[in-house]
Simulated scan of single mutants.
Amino acid sequence: MTGADGPAAAGHRRVRLVLRTRDGLLFDPSAGRTVTPEELADDVRRGHRFQARDSEHGTDCTYRVLVQILLTALTPAEPGTGTGTGSGTGTTGTGTTGRER
């Protein structure tokens, strides 16, 4: 078997090309529209592949976009509404405001 006939060719999937603009927007030229980091994150979760290129210079910036996707996924949607550590500050009306001795 040659390179084109090998197992990698049988499992080859289309790689989505995404262009990253100077201001950080992501543009899919085949769809003719911008895409969000959340949309790319969903694609990655489903096993789809993409390649990101700088729209001005054509250089690969896939890792930069992956970092952008990770930061977007790790950032809370609405800051201050979570119930993580630090939410029990004594202002919940539970009766434990420090009066007990």
Rank of each mutant, 00 (worst) to 15 (best):
R14C: 00
R14T: 06
R14E: 07
V15H: 04
V15R: 13
V15A: 11
R16G: 01
R16M: 11
R16P: 00
L17S: 04
V18L: 10
V18P: 00
V18A: 05
V18W: 04
L19K: 06
L19R: 07
L19Q: 06
L19S: 06
L19E: 08
R20E: 08
R20P: 00
T21V: 01
T21Y: 07
R22I: 05
D23Y: 01
G24C: 04
G24E: 07
G24I: 01
L25S: 14
L26Y: 11
F27R: 08
F27T: 01
D28L: 04
D28C: 11
D28W: 03
D28H: 07
P29R: 08
P29Q: 09
P29D: 10
S30Y: 05
S30K: 12
A31T: 06
G32N: 05
G32A: 08
R33Y: 01
R33Q: 04
R33E: 06
R33N: 02
V35I: 15
V35D: 13
V35A: 15
V35T: 14
V35W: 09
V35P: 08
T36P: 00
P37D: 10
P37A: 14
E38T: 13
E38G: 11
E38V: 13
E39D: 12
L40H: 08
L40P: 01
A41R: 12
D42A: 15
D43Q: 15
V44F: 09
V44T: 14
V44P: 03
V44L: 14
V44I: 14
V44W: 12
R45W: 09
R46T: 10
G47P: 04
H48G: 09
H48P: 00
R49T: 06
R49M: 08
F50H: 12
F50T: 12
Q51G: 00
Q51E: 07
A52H: 03
A52G: 02
A52S: 07
R53L: 14
R53M: 04
D54N: 09
D54G: 01
S55G: 02
S55I: 01
S55N: 03
S55L: 01
E56Q: 12
E56V: 02
H57W: 03
G58M: 11
G58D: 12
G58Q: 12
G58K: 13
T59C: 12
D60V: 03
D60W: 07
C61L: 10
C61E: 10
Y63T: 09
R64A: 03
R64S: 01
V65Q: 02
V65L: 07
V65I: 07
V65S: 02
L66Y: 02
L66P: 00
L66I: 04
V67S: 07
V67G: 01
Q68D: 08
Q68T: 05
I69A: 02
I69G: 03
I69P: 02
I69H: 03
I69Q: 04
L70W: 12
L70P: 12
L70V: 15
L70C: 13
L71S: 09
L71P: 02
T72M: 11
T72K: 12
A73M: 13
A73I: 10
A73N: 10
A73R: 14
L74A: 15
L74Y: 15
L74E: 14
L74N: 15
L74M: 15
T75F: 08
T75G: 06
